[in-house]
């Protein structure tokens, strides 16, 4: 058993190296017109713009995520508590979740203008749905007896939320927040690709226009690392909150 555990840990540690090696080999096979080598990509991450872009993208993602989390939690819990409206709106939210949101970007651009506003709003629009849907479903699962106790103790709405609802939905909510953050980041990057002068999305489009392969690969690799690290941290938090249960989520 311990031997198997060691194999698994070594295997998990080896995966990034395997991916890096695959990247290197494909770059050597395809040539640097098509694929930049990892070393070139890393060297292309120039200090002049890298930290500015990192700051811009993370700031937009963070602001968008905070709004998505607050609004998603509030709407989700409200819909979870009022069963009628929850039933009315659930299919609607699921439908909006499943549409190709990118095509709606021109509308965001018209409403929020070029720059920070539209990319934050677009990121939020991507991130809010998993948070809302998961908060709604988790609130429905809150033990009815607990809610009745809260009512007979005459707890205020805020107190009921803090003392009864929040502790109960907390583990699922973390899943929602993790998925929500990933989608917010995606939304922000897409927003930057179309309408911004800052951030990794913008730099990526610049690199495409100039056919600057090392920079393109450098940016994409950075985005993958950011997404992976943030997600792994949130996943760890989530698993600590929900106990040693298996967490395989398809979404």
């Amino acid at each position: 058993m311990t031997a198997q555990r060691t194999t698994i840990l070594i295997g998990q540690a080896a995966i990034p190296l395997v991916l890096l090696a695959l990247w290197q080999v494909s770059a050597m096979l395809a040539g640097d017109f098509y694929i930049a080598t990892p070393a070139d990509a890393f060297a292309a991450l120039d200090r002049d713009w890298f930290f500015d872009s990192l700051g811009a993208t993370l700031l937009a993602a963070f602001v968008g995520f905070l709004i998505a989390a607050a609004a998603g939690l509030w709407i989700g819990v409200t819909l979870g508590l009022t069963r009628f409206w929850g039933k009315v709106l659930e299919p609607v939210t699921l439908s909006v979740y499943s549409i190709p949101k990118v095509t709606l970007f021109p509308i965001f651009l018209t409403v929020f203008g070029f720059g920070l506003g539209s990319k934050v709003a677009f990121g939020m629009f991507h991130g809010i749905f998993p948070i809302l849907i998961i908060a709604m479903n988790a609130t429905r699962e809150v033990n009815v007896v607990h809610l009745k106790v809260a009512r007979s103790l005459r707890l205020s709405r805020t107190q009921t939320f803090k003392q009864v609802i929040f502790p109960s939905i907390y583990p699922s909510l973390l899943t929602g927040l993790r998925l929500g953050f990933s989608l917010t980041l995606l939304g922000v990057i897409l927003g930057e690709m179309f309408a911004s002068r800052a951030g990794f999305g913008y730099e990526l489009v610049e690199a495409i226009t100039l056919h600057d392969m090392p920079r393109m690969y450098g940016i994409v690799a950075t985005l993958v690392v950011i997404a992976f690290v943030v997600n792994a941290l949130l996943l760890r938090w989530e698993q600590a909150a929900s106990g040693p249960r298996r967490a395989v989520a398809a979404r």
Partner: peptide
């Protein structure tokens, strides 16, 4: 588990290239 956290569309320009 982390796969869907990756902003996949960032890879699109690479495949176009």
């Amino acid at each position: 588990t982390t796969y869907y956290a990756i902003p996949i569309f960032a890879f699109y320009p690479l495949f176009i290239a």
